[in-house]
Each structure stands twice: as C-alpha cells, then as structure tokens.
Design a protein around this nucleic acid. Structure first.
Lengths: 347, 347
DNA sequence: TTGTAGGCGTTATCAA
DNA sequence: TTGATAACGCCTACAA
C-alpha cells in the first residue's frame, strides 16, 4: 500500500501539517519535530505523491519534448543533451514523435497541456500551428529548436542552415562541379527552406543557373531519398554532384549509388549535412556539415529552465540563438586533402 | 486563464456533475445535456486537467521508459516502436537515460513512482535493484527489455544473446580463425554475460582454448571500445579476428583499425552485433547480428498495456519472450559471398 | 436524469 | 511552533 503524509504524521506522532513542513522546506518546524518526521518517513518508506503535489502547486517538473523522429541521430544527440540538463535540475522529459505530421503534433500538444508540463521544447513541423501559438500566448515557456517559426514570440535555437548549405554547394563548385543536384528535406520546415536558399545562393554567386530538374525533396527520410537518388542518376543528363540535406538521406543516397555501381566521388560527388560517428567510416568517408547538435540541446534546455524559473509573464521578444555548422572535408567530394604538416596531398 | 469543468458547466447552464458526465463516458446524461456540454466545452476551449483527473482515478496514462543511452540506435529503434504503440493507445512516455548507472536508475525509479506512472519498461543496469523489485512487488506493471533479471517475477523481452554470439564466433572459426578476440559490453548486464557465454561456447565446441588476454570489456560505449581495440592490435601476438558486441563499439573499433592501417578483413576480421542502416555502408561492410529491435519494442509495449489494463493483481509467473538475432554476412570477415543466382563467388 | 457533497494527497492560510 | 481546515480540479456515490 502506498504511504501518504497521513501515515508519516501518524508514525511520527504529529499533525499532517507538521509532517509536510518537516519534509518540505517551508514554514516553521522545531528541529525536534523535523527529525521525528524525517525518521518516520524513512522508516515507512514514504515517497511523496507528485500528482497531488502538482495539483496544488501547479508545477509538474516535467518538460514536453516534441521531435519528428527519435531514430535520427541528429535529434537523438539533442535529446541526450536536453535530458542531461533536465535531469541535473530535477526535471523529466515526456518524449513525443511527431513524425513530421501536423495533426499528430497538435494532438500531442493538447495532451501535454493536459498533463500540465512546465515547459516545452519542440522541433515544430510547420509554420501554422495555431495551438502552439495559443500555448505560447497562454504563458507556457516554449523553446523552438531546429525549426524556426515566424510570428511566434519565443526563443529559438537553430543552426544557420543557409550558410551551411551555401558552404556545401560552394565546396562542390570549387571542385569544378556545375550540375549540382540537391535532395532536400521537407520544404515546409525552415531547415528545408533555408538549405534550399543556401543552395540557390551558392549557384547564383557563381553564375550557375538553377535547374529545377535537379531539385528533389526527400522529406528527411530514407525512402524518399532513395527515390530521389534514383531519379537523379537516371536522368539523361545527370548531375555530377549532389547535396544531400541530412544524415538519414545520405544513407539512402549511398545505398542507391552503390546498388547502381555509381562511383563516389568520381561519377557522383556527395556532400551531406550532419556528422554522425559513422560519417568517417562509410566508403567513401563523407564530406559534410557538422551541426553542434549537443550544444543546441544543452542551450535549449538551459534557456527553458531559466524561463520556467523566473516565469515573468512579461511579453517576450523574439530571441534567436543561431549556431553555425562547420564543413568537414573528407573524401566523398574528391577534394584533395592535404597533410597538415607536410602540406602534401594525401588523397 | 485555464478553463475548468466549472467553466464548462456555467457556460452550458448545467451542474458540474452533468458537465463531467457529458464529457466522459460515465453515468446518465440526456442527449440534450450532453450536446450542450460538448458545445460549451468546445466554445471555451476546455482541456481537462489530467493532473486532477489522475489524483482521483490514480491513472496517469504515462509509461516510464528507462534505457541506458538514447544515442544508441539499438535503443532508439526500440523506443520508436514503443512510442508508436503507446501513442496509438493514448499513453505517453517519460524517457530517462540511466547511463548504465545504478544509482541514477534508482533515483529515476523513485521519481517515476512519485509521478505515478501506470507502467514501466526498463533495460535494467544490473541484477540487484531492490527498489525495482519493490515496485514490481507493489504491483506496478513492469516489462524488462534487453536485459534479463533473475528473481524478478515479470515479463522479459530479450534476444538470445548467447545464440547470437555463438553464431558470430562460429562464423569466424569457420573462416579459419583461431585467435579470436572479443570486445564485450558491461559484464554486469545479461547481454554482456550471455554474449561472453556464446563466445566461450563457440570456442569450446571447436576445441579452441579460451585466452583471457583476448577478452576485453568496452562497456557498450565508443571510448572504451577504442581503448580495447588498441590493446588488442598492440599485442605481441594479436588476434586475427574480433567479435565486437554492439554497434557503438564497432564504430570505435573501425576507427582504431583504420587509424592504424590495419586492413579489415585481411589483417583483422570483425563481426559486430546490431545492424543499423550504416552497417552496409561502412568500409568494409559489416558482418553482424541483426536484432529485431523494433519487434522487441512493439511486443514490450503491447504486453505492458495488456497488463496495465487487466491489472490483475495475481502473482505473475516469469514470462520470457526471447527473440533470435540473425547473422548477416557481409564483407568484414572476408567470407566468400555467393551470388544467389549464379552461385559464383562475388567477393 | 440531475445535483450535492465528499474525497484523491498535497500545500498553505490562519487561528490557537 | 503547531494544527485545523480550505483549496487544487476532477470523479462518483448517493440523494433528490
């Protein structure tokens, strides 16, 4: 049977009030009473009922976490960082996969509202999320990660996607490529949109005109990326290089190219996005943009906790934290790699 | 301001009781009242307070999920499956990383008990977990995944690790290897223990004596695996093959071998455990044991929900669901791979 | 069919 | 310094 405060009080021979005070940190209790209470609580193995506590205090010490796919190492690394910060501060995480599905997202938001989460970290699926907006307006501390949202007055922790994509494509152009394809994520999301902008900008700055036939959408998932890759290599005049906009799609593209005996980078150069541990292990090793996923998670959670704590209902201005991804040059683009000491080309 | 039942009742012009009944499924309400209530609720945007509801009903529709590392694709795939089943049934997941740390595990268990989770799915860190035992005795539905626990009378969904490890090592022996190293996980966990048993059995059945110098522990993490790999290749008489007991450690081993220009499989054959998407993309592609991680997650959650629902306090007998991993032969062991049609060796 | 009222386990006010 | 007692928002037995 579950022990309650009443049991502790009886065991300690004091009133419920004193028992509550003895265990908590508020109000007056004599040292003597406190010790009695503590001893009694330990003796009977009392664990406070947080549900009851939450009903009274309106705090749950729970943070909602909405991401699109827990199977993607990019999200996973952030989740890990978030969890670490949350745990250190006595908060727990309710994890939800939105699957890039807006309805699912809304359904989850309602559930989380019902569960009275203290704060929310979300990689939002789209721009229109009236319910999310309502939550923010209602005063729920919300941090947007990975995806930006226009007109939502809250903190956003993201990566400079346009910069990253532009770096990626410029790298290809520097290596002599002119027909450059792109397998992008969902265009509804800002990473999708911004990475496409970066791609366009790199082309424009180098006077290469945009060829719509070379632009594919992969939804950030493997199946669509496979399909897109197949389409690209089957073109009568295929690209000589592809910018693939996240780690999951890189796997799909590599699979398809290998299955079709298209040599990387000789016949097709590849730049990716994200830098998981296996990126240097695949053949050829992947040239890619490394995103500071761990930092994003850490910062997002820290800012969230800060906001939960001060809980000033002051109207928040937009606050944007934007981190830069970094180009990691390996072999999938055929760039010469120089030994840092001898300056001789290793590859 | 948050709306309550009282607001709905006022809006609909009925009592709180009727409002509650109209929204829920209990008791009598006239069709007319129900409609009024429903309309009123929608109009004012009422979302029930699950905390209050939980206090009364003692149900939270929340499942605790304890795993050691959310960054490991093996766990992640299970989590994904669990989340899918949970979501379909109206349950949410509280995610906790134990980091293979028993104290952290116990701390989390206490928190989850306080939060009154309806059930728990856990990849336990060790054999002794008095608190977990207490929870099970107290009637909390618990499913053990990945790791078995002796003397805990509940359902366990695991993989036949000994079988898998034995398959892996036998494959190496079949290819002529005699000095076979192993980089194992934490020996406190059953996967660690059982995979080692499988390793030993394969050697024994082939009259190869166990050489303790070839047995390393990598804790299922990358750093320790790197260290173990370094030690193995630096031996005066190094092994010709290594069985690496999970996907994360495979990455560490590959890194070290590549850094030291040890050719796989010519100078060192590798068999792994787990079959992530990148396993076929790394160079050389990985021969490994594929575990049905998605099925484990699905089954674990289904069984848990079933148990939550019937909630018979009947003493549970141990129930073990054991799935078999499957050897996927690729190139990291140097096995000849035959074309399924021509029967000619491809490699 | 509807409404009143008590209680779930806490916290916190206020009087003793 | 302590202890009744009234919330928190919901469910539900019981009376009307």
């Amino acid at each position: 049977m579950r022990k309650t405060l009443k049991d502790v009080a009886r065991e300690a021979g004091v009133s419920i009030t004193v028992a509550s005070r003895g265990l908590g940190s508020y109000g007056y209790v004599s040292r003597e009473s406190r010790e009695k209470v503590l001893r009694a609580a330990k003796k009977i193995g009392y664990q406070p009922d947080q549900i009851a506590k939450s009903l009274k205090t309106q705090q749950t010490y729970t943070i909602g976490l909405l991401i699109s796919d827990i199977t993607n190492i990019w999200f996973t690394t952030m989740v890990r960082a978030i969890e670490d910060v949350a745990e250190q501060n006595g908060y727990n995480l309710i994890l939800c996969n939105t699957d890039e599905n807006q309805e699912k997202e809304t359904r989850y938001l309602k559930v989380l509202y019902g569960k009275k989460i203290d704060g929310l970290i979300i990689a939002a699926t789209g721009e229109k999320s009236p319910y999310l907006k309502k939550l923010i307006r209602g005063g729920l501390p919300v941090i947007l990660i990975d995806r930006k949202l226009k007109g939502f007055h809250t903190t956003q922790v993201t990566v400079d996607n346009e910069f990253g994509a532009c770096e990626a494509v410029k790298h290809l152009i520097d290596l002599g490529h002119k027909r450059i394809g792109v397998i992008n994520g969902h265009p509804r999301t800002t990473p999708g949109k911004e990475r496409f902008e970066g791609y366009k900008r790199a082309l424009a700055e180098n006077n290469i005109s945009l060829n719509p036939a070379l632009v594919k959408y992969g939804d950030f998932r493997i199946e669509k990326a496979r399909k897109a890759s197949q389409e690209l290599i089957k073109m009568k005049n295929p690209p000589t290089a592809i910018f693939v906009a996240n780690n999951v799609m890189v796997m799909g593209t590599y699979q398809v190219l290998k299955e079709n005996n298209v040599r990387i980078p000789e016949e097709m150069a590849i730049v990716g996005f994200d830098d998981p541990e296996w990126a240097s292990l695949i053949e050829p090793s992947l040239t890619t943009l490394r995103q500071p996923s761990h930092s994003i998670g850490t910062m997002a959670c820290q800012v969230l906790l800060q906001r939960i704590r001060k809980n000033e209902r002051k109207r928040l201005q937009d606050e944007e934290i934007v981190l830069r991804p970094k180009l990691i040059i390996r072999k999938s683009c055929g760039a010469k790699i120089f030994d840092s000491v001898s300056q001789k080309a290793i590859v």
